[in-house]
Design a protein around this nucleic acid. Structure first.
Lengths: 234, 234
DNA sequence: AAAAACTTGTCACATAGTTGTCATATTTTC
DNA sequence: GAAAATATGACAACTATGTGACAAGTTTTT
């Protein structure tokens, strides 16, 4: 019954095995699931047959040069919006700009800091329809497209309303949102619903978050509303 | 359990390590918490990954020129309101105006006086939803967004009314506010409450402030009302 | 199409936190 | 030292929030 969670899938296209392994380790530790492949041709196949959230693409791969793969990718209807981070040792501005021009969404110079790798992946996902927040030791990833939220890659079972509520609160962590504000933005401006309903939905959302040790994320601000705290234990 | 409070986070983007260190020391001494990074690329990542209250941005950083970073920043939905102080050796009016045009909120010429640095940071935060006051050796930071007040980064446990009262008094330090004025502005014009009630709430507010050695901040002006003193003379 | 499963709004009660007032103490002013 | 103003502690009323239950409405299964 315990279904394997697919989580946020990242395709790593990198021929140097140790580097690929390093990437995998750190991304997995951050809650992503990864798939590695070592050459461009295989990558195409994988991309066509599976759905990934993001690709890390080494510029220097055998079979098809990184840029060629990228160029091909951007011509595919189904893939052209896939976020791509180009990985390359060529840190020169010129090369970088070229990569970006070709359709890479971001760029990671090699050698890289593991932290930077993870941070860039998170940032890029956020720029897509994700909201990613590092919460203490957990990564919360809210994907609007898929209408799903994940904590360290594990999917949260949220009702649609709860999902929207979480999203809204995460939009500006630290900012207190009044019940009225939440009603307007989550339920919609013309929904005629009692303010107290917000409390109940918050409660339900919290209950789920609690399972992941994130019960403290949503803070009640007495007399004002609720707030998503990025760093609890205030 | 007693975790270090994150307080008001400031991102310092500065490649000259000694200068960055200097900034850090003084800002931390003033009660802010800081994060330093030395290049523009890393800064983008950090900005996307975390939430800062303010950024100090050197104009001459490697990787991405300060102005480019700023321009990028202002295009990001989530970041466009981040207060930015541009730090630059180019004190010429022309350059300064250009920086401001690009979206810097303030400007700090290099070399700078540490005091000026802190003062500008506080002033700028004050212009955002923060009210920051230097009180003897403590920094009081009242954040309206988060509905919380901090002294040297440590959170004050204030009741809503006390919070509003503190805010109101801090709005114009040194100015005496009559009980009636406070009733009108804190309790609201139509609240029918005794004037003496103000005394009690002041008392309660003072009690909390005392824990941080700030009991003298709120001065009673006999016959007139109360006043928030920026530099208590006791 | 009926049944089952799920979502969500509301209510009612429990709990907890806030605040106004009063009575009394203390300080200040003259 | 008396009068006036303010400080302070206690308390009770009040208000806001948490929480479980339930019903009405939806969607999914069968």
């Amino acid at each position: 019954m315990t279904k394997k969670n697919s989580s946020t899938d990242i395709l790593i296209v990198e021929d140097e095995a140790p580097i690929a392994r390093l990437m995998e380790i750190h991304l997995q530790r951050a809650g992503f699931s990864t798939k590695t492949c070592a050459n461009g041709r295989k990558a195409c196949t994988l991309l066509e047959e599976n759905h990934y959230q993001l690709m890390l693409l080494d510029r220097m791969i055998p079979g098809l040069r990184g840029l060629d793969l990228l160029r091909w990718l951007r011509k595919q209807e189904a893939l052209k919006i896939l976020p791509v981070i180009m990985v390359t040792a060529l840190a020169q501005t010129e090369e970088r700009i070229r990569g970006l021009n070709e359709g890479a969404d971001d760029y990671l110079p090699k050698p890289f800091e593991p932290d930077e790798l993870v941070a860039r992946v998170q940032a890029l996902l956020r720029r897509s329809s994700h909201q990613v927040i590092q919460q203490q030791k957990s990564t919360i990833d809210v994907n609007k497209d898929a209408m799903e939220a994940r904590v360290n890659g594990e999917r949260l079972d949220l009702r649609p309303l709860e999902f929207k509520l979480l999203r809204r609160l995460m939009k500006k962590p630290g900012k207190v949102r009044s019940r009225q504000y939440l009603l307007d933005h989550v339920w919609g401006i013309n929904a005629f619903v009692e303010e107290r309903t917000v409390d109940v939905t918050i409660k339900r959302l919290r209950k789920t978050l609690e399972k992941y040790g994130l019960g403290e994320c949503i803070v009640t601000v007495r007399g004002s509303g609720y707030r998503f705290d990025e760093k609890p234990h205030t």
